[in-house]
């Protein structure tokens, strides 16, 4: 009888401990919610430590994944190589004509700039980072990249890919950073319609196509219109390609981004130096204000 009684007492203690663990941990979860809401240094440090520790692991994992993806792409491309070739040849001819035009315009633009004594936009240094995690989901959309404070990354810096704007850095750890994507529900960036120069705000909502809000002249907008950053607030440099209008219905304008968020491998982080995009108001400030 004795061992049995001991066993049941042991069992009861185990159950009690188990319940206690549940209560303590649920309290801890609520505590974390409050701490996170207060945006304390502790929480930031914790998440930086975790992402910094996991970034190398994710990097190792992403390399074979990238090669598998590349092989799959190769197979897919081989199947359509003939049509692709014909299409590219045609596109090449068209682009060559554009190139000639662009050269002429570049020369003309340079002459006009010289005439107007225009202060050139600051040229950024860029840091290239590998995308190691794409946490696109229902509740938040962001990337983790292998560039951190030790590489010169800072919170708020603009992130671009070859095709266009990706987003901006919201958290910077020592070795890794988080890029808030344009589709994230917290992303709101000032943009401008390339043709009409009408200003608007591109608002993410965790869907693949962010919405164009606060646009005054909605009447003239039609699918296919290009959208670029406006640089109004100084957070983004003006003229970065963002996307095209995908659909217009009942006042809701949806934008198809130039980048494919799920397929980014490398991104560039634009570094405008310690002054940011808005440099010190120096002798050229008046001239710049006049051109904005």
């Amino acid at each position: 009888m004795q061992p049995n009684g001991q066993l049941s007492r042991f069992g009861a203690m185990k159950v009690a401990l188990h319940r206690l663990a549940f209560v303590v941990l649920v309290a801890a979860a609520f505590g974390l919610m409050l701490l996170g809401k207060a945006d304390t240094v502790l929480v930031t440090r914790l998440s930086h430590a975790v992402t910094d520790a996991l970034a190398p692991v994710l990097e190792v994992m992403s390399k074979p994944a990238a090669s598998v993806g590349a092989v799959m792409n190769n197979i897919r491309e081989l199947a359509a190589i003939r049509e692709e070739n014909a299409r590219l040849r045609e596109e090449n001819q068209r682009l060559l004509r554009w190139q000639t035009l662009a050269r002429q315009l570049q020369v003309e633009n340079q002459r006009l700039r010289d005439l107007a004594n225009l202060v050139p936009d600051p040229r950024p240094r860029s840091i290239t980072g590998r995308v190691v995690a794409d946490t696109g989901g229902v509740f938040a959309r962001s990337l983790l990249v292998t560039v951190g404070a030790r590489d010169g990354a800072r919170k708020g810096q603009v992130v671009v890919a070859a095709e266009g704007l990706v987003g901006r850095l919201t958290e910077v750890g020592a070795r890794s950073s988080r890029v808030l994507l344009l589709t994230d529900i917290n992303s709101k960036i000032p943009v401008v319609m390339e043709e009409s120069r009408a200003r608007a705000i591109l608002v993410g909502d965790n869907s693949n196509r962010p919405e164009l809000a606060f646009l005054k002249a909605k009447a003239g907008v039609s699918p296919g219109d290009r959208i670029v950053t406006s640089g109004v607030t100084g957070a983004f440099p003006p003229g970065l390609p963002v996307g095209v209008v995908a659909s217009v219905d009942e006042g809701h304008i949806r934008v198809e981004l130039f980048i494919e968020e799920g397929r980014l491998e490398l991104v560039r982080i634009l570094d405008y130096g310690p002054d940011g995009i808005i440099a010190d108001p120096g002798p050229g400030a008046a001239a710049r204000a006049g051109t904005d």
């Binding site: 188990h18 663990a21 549940f22 941990l25 649920v26 801890a28 979860a29 609520f30 505590g31 974390l32 919610m33 701490l35 996170g36 809401k37 929480v43 914790l46 998440s47 975790v50 992402t51 996991l54 995690a133 946490t135 989901g137 509740f139 938040a140 962001s142 983790l144 988080r178 808030l180």
Partner: peptide, 27 residues
């Protein structure tokens, strides 16, 4: 429960969702 809590915490940090939410749901 400690496993569920830790997994949720890591998920929230990686996914950029408010901390503590996933831990609570998993537990």
């Amino acid at each position: 429960y400690l496993g569920g809590f830790s997994l949720g915490l890591l998920e929230d940090i990686l996914m950029n969702t408010p901390l503590g939410v996933s831990s609570l749901i998993l537990m």
